[in-house]
Amino acid sequence: MKCQCETYLLLDWQYCPVCTAPVLITDQSDELKSRGFHRFPAAFAPLSYRFGKHVADQSWFYATFCQYVLLIKFDPTQLVYFRSTLLDRYFCFVGPNPPVATNEAFWCAISLVTDRYFRRRAAIYSWSSSQEQQIVEAWYDLIDLAFLVHEKNTVLETSKIAEWSSRLDEMQTQETGPHLACQLCESKCKYGEDIKFMITNDPLAIGEARSSVEGKSDSQQIEQLAWFARLWTERTLCLYDEDFAFCMSINVADRLGWSPERVHQLMVPIRESCHIDSCPEV
């Protein structure tokens, strides 16, 4: 955080020590809009909100959240197992000994990210507002259990989580994907948005992909591209999904500046290289 006089400010400071101006309370209009607010109002108290908003604004936290939703699709129990990774990211951004309760600021952060995530989806897949509201509320019902304290013990069948995931998948189903090569994909378009975000969020990764394909023949380039995508897939999902890896390959190729026509031309061998048996050993 920076003051208008360019002084670097800590998140909990109320005044700029150099120009003595009070630090403007961050615009809290989101607070009232957030669907997470009424589930835990204390999380949106000014100081907690300031920390939560700061964390939610970090693209790495958002990318981790995307990963969370994806993982739950493949393994519903990740709803609880992945909590520690999310919390780990939270601690990347709050600095030493933050003067707020972790569960409060964390709930604020995850609520804000949730709102943003589904608002974006709603715009892309043209959901109606009632559709959006339904899926968001159902999501909040899940994370509410995982992160908030309740008076009573609660039992949740993992099939309920899987149900939610498949509902989200249904709402994301499209006839065509954003790229020409998408015609070979069988999960249009479950991954495109998340993958695009993950790639743009880690800009140096494209440099790594570039150096591994540069100066190679076409067939070697395809192999390297698929290898890169396969590694990334396994690291993101902790398992392998062919469509995900294919989507990753197309998106990386796009970022590498391959023309859509070239990707279209090469899509069959790319798809074949994403097939798990034909991947070169790590």
């Binding site: 400010l9 800590l10 909990d12 400071w13 109320q14 005044y15 700029c16 020590p17 150099v18 120009c19 003595t20 009070p22």
Partner: peptide, 12 residues
Amino acid sequence: QKTEWNCCPYCG
């Protein structure tokens, strides 16, 4: 507080 500061960042 730092010597170069003009006010306390916490209470002003």
